[in-house]
Amino acid sequence: MTRDDSTGSGGLGFEPEDLDGHTMDELGDYLDAGRTPADPSIDASPGCRIALDALERLRRLGPALLDQDTAAEPQADENWVRSIINGIARDARAGRRIPLSVAEPDDDLGITEGAVRGLIRSAGDAVPGVLIGRCRLDGDVTIPGAPIRIDVEASVPYGLPIVRLTQRLRTEIGDRLRTHAELNIAGIDIVVHDVRDLPKGGGEER
């Protein structure tokens, strides 16, 4: 975590690839176990919670996605799922602090960049089969009103019109950001990074 972490846990000496002392593999095991028994050190960490949300999302696309990645096209994109997981770990960190408006000048309200990236990732839930990989807030988010561009990489299912999917994803992201983050969004750029077969199972019910 960085110095401007919301919870100030940057000085705890955890490894940079960890989230408050937990690896993504540990978080995956925690999900496998149904989050039981409860691990307070995971549940008390916003970064872990953001990462768990994203891992759950990945898993809802179904086991076929994982099989596909490891068996069908290992050379095409080295290890796509691993890259997504690494991106989740990176994006779940608190990052910069984005101000929220407040009438009292002595008070300081804000939302972490990690929480906003988690919000952007959740927009993928509304578009069937779409999975958001890396997302970046480009611009000085710490200055109220500064123009910010959102850069998102997405994976989309084969057989659905990419233009419609990305339009819908852009709308979902924009709606969520307008509702929850008081940012001046100058644009939302979506790069389709991957087209894959729509997995049977979890993806169909979304």
Binding site: L100, I111, T112, G114, G118
Partner: peptide, 12 residues
């Protein structure tokens, strides 16, 4: 003097 940080938005 109050400092509030939104650290997580629950998507559930």
């Amino acid at each position: 003097q109050i400092r509030i940080t939104v650290a997580h938005l629950d998507a559930s």
